[in-house]
Amino acid sequence: MQAATDPDLRSMSIRQLLGLYSRILTELIQRGVVRSRNAPAGDLAESVVAQAYRGQLAPQSEKSWDVRAADGTLLQVKCRVIEPGSRRTHVYSPFRSWSFDVCVFVILNSVTYNIEQAVEVPADQVKTAARASSWVAGHRITVGQIRAGLEGAVDLTDRLREAYVALDRLEQTQVVDLSQRAY
């Protein structure tokens, strides 16, 4: 049951909801309850990429790719939420298979959840740049590597920002289950 003082979440845009979520996470971090801000980021990035590529999200059980683009390209999506000005080494989640065509790397601002950077990198270049890690039983790429640029990388920042705006507008016109939508 909603209390009279609770915000009306259904009337809020995606960005407003994520801003509220960010403030909640900040409080939980300050209280020592959680250590990371990355929780909704992966799903959000996948939805934005699906919108940008007019694609469809992979089934939940798919291990190697996250979005099938309209042209059939299989996209792996990796996302990190980074605090503005952070100098820490941030690492994307590990690659444990290479059955995708390209990887879209997304960096989100931890305060606004705006897209700071997005790049598409061919799978063979990701595999070449990734470092094996026995600790995670996979291969890892750092945010620093993406920011410095990998061979064959294509900047998608503007394209994903536009898709994010379109997704926000689409969501505001109707309450929908985004996991079932083909973009």
Rank of each mutant, 00 (worst) to 15 (best):
Q2I: 13
Q2T: 15
T5E: 02
D6I: 00
D6R: 04
P7N: 05
P7L: 05
L9E: 01
L9N: 02
R10D: 06
R10I: 07
S11W: 00
M12N: 04
I14M: 08
R15F: 13
R15E: 15
Q16S: 14
Q16N: 09
Q16C: 10
L17E: 00
L18M: 15
L18F: 15
G19R: 13
G19F: 06
G19C: 06
L20G: 10
Y21E: 04
S22V: 03
I24Y: 00
I24R: 00
I24G: 02
L25P: 00
L25A: 06
T26K: 01
E27W: 00
R31I: 00
G32A: 11
G32Q: 06
V33K: 01
N38L: 05
A39F: 12
P40N: 02
A41V: 03
L44C: 10
A45D: 05
V49I: 14
A50N: 08
A50E: 09
Q51W: 09
A52M: 09
Q56Y: 00
Q56D: 01
A58N: 00
P59C: 02
Q60A: 15
S61I: 00
K63F: 03
D66N: 07
D66C: 04
R68E: 07
R68V: 14
D71C: 07
G72N: 12
G72F: 02
Q76M: 02
K78V: 10
R80H: 04
P84Y: 07
G85A: 09
G85L: 08
R88D: 07
R88W: 00
R88L: 11
R88V: 06
T89F: 03
H90A: 13
Y92E: 10
S93G: 15
F95K: 01
R96N: 12
F100L: 08
F100V: 03
V104C: 12
V104T: 15
F105C: 14
I107E: 13
I107F: 01
S110P: 06
T112G: 11
T112L: 09
T112P: 14
N114V: 02
I115T: 05
E116V: 15
E116S: 11
Q117F: 07
A118Q: 09
V119W: 03
E120D: 09
E120S: 15
V121Y: 02
A123V: 12
D124Y: 08
T128G: 02
A129F: 02
A129Q: 08
A129R: 07
A130D: 03
A130H: 04
A130S: 12
A132F: 15
S133I: 05
A137N: 15
G138H: 08
G138D: 05
G138F: 09
I141G: 09
T142E: 03
T142K: 02
V143A: 10
G144H: 07
G144E: 07
G144S: 13
Q145N: 10
Q145H: 08
R147Q: 13
R147I: 15
A148P: 05
L150N: 10
V154D: 03
D158R: 11
R159A: 15
R161C: 12
A163G: 11
A163P: 13
Y164R: 01
V165R: 07
V165Q: 07
A166V: 09
D168P: 11
R169G: 10
R169F: 12
R169C: 11
L170F: 14
L170Y: 13
E171F: 14
Q172L: 08
T173Y: 10
Q174Y: 07
Q174R: 14
Q174G: 13
V175N: 10
V176D: 09
D177L: 12
Q180G: 14
A182F: 10
